[in-house]
């Protein structure tokens, strides 16, 4: 299978890339790892006239530990996110999510920013960055702006990114005392999940504080389970509270029937995964419910 013919650009600096985007508007597509874009081009689901390959812009490939925040450049490969020590120590949900994405071959190419910019509700990283309270840095010729991850995902394959913007980096706050994890259930190894769940919360040992729950693959975009979070905040850490929250989150999901399962099955998976994610996270710090 071949993609439709296109003009190929491989700018070496971000300015040059932004000029090409400015000039070609909706006819241009940025290429990161190409692990979502190339399959779609081969199937002719999309046929951009201009491909702007950003892989030569080495200033976009970095992870910076700035103490209170970790900044991840868009071009960082998932395989590198997975192994980055400071992330493991400080915001482990990010590498824990990374290692569950696709398979090692895809993760060697696929980029951190591409997984977020794509706006695919089945991409796993959006839920993980969302619960950490990350901000997405987007740059156009008129400068950079930061968007809260919670406001970034608009609809299926639609994000707050404008045609003339590049997702430059993602800023992940390091919140002391927070715990949580990302888990997904797959039909087969290396696949997108039937559903995925990110949880991130703090606690005073007795009660939940500032709970955040996000769901993958069960709606038009990643879903922030706000009602479940509101319910859990200030609740005592008990099995019953977690169970109740998992049911609320399941009601907040909007799955549809497809090859990965029926709507009702996916709702059950969501509730199971929410429960499991809390139990796993609490077990690790020894405050089992």
């Amino acid at each position: 299978m071949y993609p439709k013919d296109f003009e190929y650009h491989s700018p070496e600096g971000i300015e040059e890339a932004l000029n090409i985007l400015e000039k070609n508007g909706s006819e241009a597509k940025i290429m990161g790892g190409g692990q979502s874009l190339i399959p779609m081009m081969k199937l002719r689901i999309v046929a951009p006239k201009h491909i702007v390959d950003i892989n030569k812009i080495s200033s976009l490939d970095f992870i910076k530990d700035e103490g209170k925040r970790i900044v991840i450049g868009t071009l960082t490969r998932m395989a590198d996110v997975e192994k980055y020590e400071a992330l493991r120590k400080k915001v482990r949900i990010i590498p824990e999510c990374a290692e569950q994405i696709a398979d090692p071959l895809v993760r060697n190419m696929g980029t951190f920013g591409g997984n977020i910019a794509h706006g695919d509700p089945n991409n796993d990283m959006p839920a993980a960055v969302l619960v950490t309270g990350a901000r997405i840095v987007c740059r156009s010729k008129s400068g950079a702006r930061e968007i809260e991850a919670r406001n970034f995902f608009v609809d299926t394959f639609t994000t707050a990114l404008k045609e003339n913007e590049i997702l430059e980096s993602v800023v992940i706050p390091v919140s002391r005392g927070y715990k949580g994890t990302y888990i997904k259930m797959e039909r087969i190894a290396g696949d997108y999940g039937i559903a995925g769940v990110a949880v991130w919360f703090s606690s005073d040992g007795e009660r939940f504080r500032d709970c955040r729950i996000a769901l993958t693959g069960v709606g038009p975009t990643v879903i922030y389970a706000e009602k479940a979070c509101n319910y859990l905040n200030d609740q005592r850490i008990t099995r019953e509270a977690i169970k109740r929250a998992s049911e609320v989150a399941s009601q907040e999901s909007k799955p549809s029937d497809d090859l990965r399962g029926s709507e009702s099955f996916k709702r059950k998976v969501v509730s199971l995964l929410v429960r499991r994610a809390f139990e796993v996270s609490l077990k690790e710090v020894g405050s089992e419910p």
Partner: peptide, 29 residues
């Protein structure tokens, strides 16, 4: 498979195993 799923096309690109059916030749420049 030619649809990025099977890995029969794996090659090393700068030492890392990748699916060569999901990379453009020009990207290996």
């Amino acid at each position: 498979c030619d649809t990025s799923s099977c890995g029969a096309c794996a090659v090393l690109l700068n030492g890392r195993a990748v699916k060569s059916c999901t990379i453009l030749a020009v990207q290996a420049e």
